[in-house]
Computed example of a mutant assay.
Amino acid sequence: MHKPSPIIRISSRIAKGVLLAGTLLYALLFLFGAYSGYIAPMRWTAPAFLGLFFPLLLAGWILISLFWLLTLDVRRLLLVGAVWLIALPQLLTFFPISRSTKVLGTEGEVLRVLSYNVSAFGFKPHSATQPNPILQYIRSSDADIVCLQEAMLNQNPEAGVVTKTLREYLASDYPYIACIQVGTGGSTLAILSKYPLSEVEQIPVPTHANGAIKAKVKLKGHELLLVNVHLESFHLKADDGANYIALAKQGEALQLKDALRAKLGPTFRYHNAQAVILHELIKAYNSPRVLVCGDFNDTPLSYTRRKIGDGLKDAFVARGNGFGFTFRNRPFIVRIDHILYGKAFRALSCEIDKTADESDHYPISAVLALDEAFYQD
Rank of each mutant, 00 (worst) to 15 (best):
S5V: 09
K16A: 14
G17L: 05
A21T: 12
T23Y: 05
L24V: 13
Y26I: 07
F32Y: 10
G33K: 09
T45I: 15
F49P: 07
L50W: 08
G51S: 08
L52A: 00
F53Q: 06
L57H: 12
A59F: 13
S65I: 07
F67V: 06
L70V: 11
L70Q: 08
R76A: 14
V80L: 03
G81W: 09
V83W: 07
L85K: 05
L85S: 07
I86P: 03
Q90D: 04
T93A: 14
F94W: 09
F95C: 08
R99H: 11
S100D: 14
T101R: 12
V103G: 05
V113P: 08
L114D: 05
S115Q: 07
Y116A: 07
N117Q: 11
A120S: 14
G122D: 02
P125N: 08
A128I: 02
T129F: 01
Q130P: 00
P131Q: 10
P133M: 02
A151R: 00
M152K: 13
M152E: 08
N154Q: 11
A159L: 06
L166Y: 02
L166F: 01
L166Q: 01
R167I: 04
E168P: 00
L170C: 00
A171W: 08
S172I: 02
D173E: 14
P175D: 04
Q181H: 01
V182E: 10
T184H: 07
T184N: 10
G185A: 08
G185L: 02
Y195P: 07
L197V: 02
L197Q: 02
V205A: 00
H208G: 09
H208N: 10
I213E: 03
K216H: 12
L219R: 10
E223L: 09
N228I: 05
N228G: 04
E232I: 13
S233G: 03
S233I: 06
K237L: 11
K237P: 01
A238G: 08
L247G: 04
K249A: 10
Q250H: 12
G251K: 14
E252I: 12
E252H: 15
L254I: 15
K257I: 15
A262I: 11
L264F: 15
L264H: 11
L264C: 15
P266C: 12
T267M: 09
Y270E: 12
N272D: 15
I277F: 03
E280V: 05
A284W: 01
N286P: 01
D295Y: 03
T299H: 06
P300N: 09
Y303W: 09
Y303P: 02
I308D: 00
I308F: 01
D310I: 00
A318R: 15
R319H: 05
R319A: 13
G320P: 07
G322I: 02
G322M: 04
G324M: 05
T326L: 01
R328L: 12
N329D: 11
F332H: 10
F332P: 11
V334H: 14
I336L: 15
L340H: 15
Y341Q: 15
Y341T: 13
G342S: 13
F345H: 11
A347K: 04
A347R: 02
S349D: 12
D353M: 02
D357C: 13
D360L: 15
D360V: 15
I364A: 15
I364N: 10
S365Y: 05
S365C: 03
A373W: 08
F374D: 06
Y375G: 04
Y375N: 07
